[in-house]
Design a binder for these strands. Structure first.
Lengths: 219, 219
DNA sequence: ATCTCATGTAAAGGGCTTTTACATGAGCAG
DNA sequence: CTGCTCATGTAAAAGCCCTTTACATGAGAT
């Protein structure tokens, strides 16, 4: 008996790569209908197997979502690392890329982003997931270390605090304004511009000299 | 036939105030099991009515959640307005209260907060809900107006931008760190302190004089 | 060639959502 | 008071999803 509407290549009794197929299905379905609208059964149908088959690969629906979130954090880490590029050519420019990469990820990978931050997955029950999240944050933290490292020791703020500030700010903008089609509010400026302006103002507040143009009078 | 495990006062065939009872049930259930775990049927059971009764008051499950979100925005607006208190005694102190009120609301009313920001309710399909959200933001916007109003016109940033920055920052901290028991990460400082520090740094970046102590070396 | 075990199926129980037809009784008109 | 009406609630049912259990298949090892 054939289960799939989407016949991705004929197969016999065994699928061959069901786990990956389920993850891909989850990504498509979460993107289309949100994490709440995603169902285990539909992922199974999409992959062309019976509703019970997914249980051979995931304890339950939540574990599949957690796996998607974990993969999302890995991709996220890669995107951030690539944007940061060791802080070259200068820390400010690299930080700017980092922020834009965060927003871009939220916009272009809404399914991952949902699974990571909005699906209500309990971080503390899955060590792998938690570790993946830590790795993503570590990129930001390392960037903050480099940022404050350029400052005179006397006026140097805690790098962890700076990392948390920038993460919070960026995450807030991403959550509120930078989602796909279901944007919660229309803005008079692009989320990227909003973030860049905030970032420059914040840097000036830290005493960084290089921050200029932050308070231009655009309205 | 009796449906309720929770017999909140005996009643006859008609409940008398089912709509309110359902909203209260939704709040308890969302708080206990998250917006995803909340079910229409359980709310009905909780209120002591049959599973079909709620449909006399809400088109479907989503409309109930949207109603909860709307009420949440109203409470939120009241909390923010009360904290702002017209910017007295001075703008900075009032802004500080505003931020703390935001975090407090997220922590003490996780059910409202979830319904408002995490349940994936489409803002654009419900005018009432959208309007309630606008009213909440209007408090923050008015506060930002007052903040930048104290600045010399030459160095005055757009109030809307400032409002969006502070909203994003606060929302980011609330979402990432200031939730109830399911905190996504443990912090070396209280979310309130984190917010206050960021706020002071941001104000210094705007050129506000009154911001001091923002970069103390606590670690 | 055979065995084994990971992977998939069938079937079933239980719950949720939503609709439809019917029941109740609160409030109002006469 | 009597009786009508309609908002409000119930019962029943169809459809879907989640998850478990017993059974089937066949890929890879021996």
């Amino acid at each position: 008996m054939r289960w799939g509407k989407h016949d991705h290549g004929s197969r016999g009794y065994h699928h061959g790569n069901l786990k990956e197929a389920l993850v891909r299905a989850a990504l498509e379905l979460i993107e289309k209908k949100g994490p709440a609208g995603f169902t285990f059964a539909e992922a199974a149908r999409w992959a062309g197997v019976s509703p019970a088959a997914p249980y051979r690969h995931f304890r339950d629906r939540d574990e599949l979502i957690a796996d998607v979130a974990r993969r999302g954090f890995d991709e996220f880490t890669a995107a951030l690392t690539g944007a940061w590029e060791d802080g070259k050519p200068d820390v400010i420019a690299a930080f700017d890329r980092l922020g834009k990469a965060y927003l871009t990820f939220a916009k272009r990978e809404p399914a991952y982003y949902s699974a990571m931050f909005e699906a209500g997955v309990p971080l503390d029950t899955d060590a792998e997931l938690r570790a993946a999240g830590e790795r993503a944050f570590a990129v930001l933290r390392a960037a903050a270390e480099k940022l404050v490292g350029d400052m005179p020791a006397r006026a140097r703020p805690p790098a962890l605090m700076v990392a948390l500030h920038i993460w919070s700010l960026t995450h807030g903008i991403a959550s509120l304004f930078s989602r796909g089609d279901a944007a919660r509010r229309t803005l008079p400026m692009a989320p990227e511009e909003l973030l860049e302006a905030a970032f420059l103002i914040y840097l000036r507040g830290l005493g960084l000299p290089s921050a200029s143009g932050a308070t231009d009078d655009r309205d």
